[in-house]
């Protein structure tokens, strides 16, 4: 069985900051419909890898392909326009603004006709309708009031809004950076269910996390990053968490044969 073509892939990514090499010829592959975990010790270059993939950092060398086409992201906007959405660890939500305002921040919908073209009037109705729709799709309508401000919401609810925003606009890939790091046990559970929901809707997800139980629970494959490059990709069904930790810290050699998807 031949492997399906990768949705998002990278070859030979290199990024140096002065004498520090953050990425050292790193490779990356994300296949359709999967959740790919990215794990690695602190300083392994996970963050740099993700920043290159979502356009926040321009690599010194290497190429990125989206659906087989070579892409050059100069800014996060480029990546967003190409269909790659990121849920940042800090969530990138504005506390004083409403759920709707936050979901559409930077890509607001304007009214039809002269009001929108000349007076640049926002189409609040349409934005609220879409926001409510997207939140309902993900089962997040325990959030009753769409005009509610983010600061009045719990950590899990905020995460929910950030995920819903990514799911609403991401057409190709969603990248999530430590989505459960700041959450309690029960809220983490909700977010993990949310991630599975997004997967069921067909979007491939890149999940960066330090939380091994979470990674092993939801991921189809795990990309282990070490010393600025991909050490190996493992199948969570064939390896234990301690194996993964051993590999990412260098205590254990990676499996000799690449595991298929």
């Amino acid at each position: 069985m031949s492997a399906p073509a990768a949705v998002l892939s990278a070859r030979g990514l290199t990024k140096r900051y002065g004498r520090v090499t953050a990425l050292n010829h790193a490779d990356f592959d994300l296949y359709p419909g999967e959740i790919l975990g990215v794990i690695g010790d602190n300083g392994a270059g996970k963050t740099s890898l993700i920043k290159v993939l979502n356009g926040a950092v321009v690599p010194d060398e290497g190429e990125i392909r989206l659906d087989g086409q070579v892409v050059h992201f100069r800014t996060p906007e480029d990546a967003r326009n190409a269909g790659i959405e990121t849920v940042f660890q800090t969530l990138a939500l504005s506390p004083a603004l409403s759920i709707t305002d936050n979901m559409f921040l930077g890509r607001e919908i304007r009214s039809q006709g002269i009001l929108g073209k000349v007076f640049r009037k926002l189409d609040r109705g349409a934005m609220e309708r879409i926001a409510r729709e997207k939140l309902s799709e993900l089962g997040l309508m325990t959030i009753q009031n769409i005009a509610q401000t983010i600061e009045t919401m719990s950590g899990g609810q905020r995460q929910g809004v950030a995920v819903a925003r990514a799911a609403a606009f991401g057409s190709k890939v969603i990248i999530m950076d430590e989505p459960t790091a700041a959450l309690g046990v029960k809220e983490s559970r909700r977010v993990l269910e949310l991630i599975k929901d997004v997967k069921r809707r067909g979007l491939p997800i890149v999940l960066i996390s330090h939380n091994m139980p979470h990674v092993f629970e939801v991921c189809d494959r795990i990309h282990i990053h070490r010393l600025g490059r991909r050490l190996c990709t493992i199948d969570p069904r064939l390896h234990s968490m301690s194996d993964a930790v051993a590999m990412m810290t260098g205590a254990m050699a990676p499996p000799a044969v690449a595991e298929t998807v």
Partner: peptide, 19 residues
């Protein structure tokens, strides 16, 4: 106008959100 509010609220979040 919404961007002006967002920038004052949390400039980093505003930048990440694409403003």
């Amino acid at each position: 106008g919404r961007h002006v509010h967002a920038i004052g609220d949390d400039p980093e979040a505003a930048t990440l959100a694409g403003i």
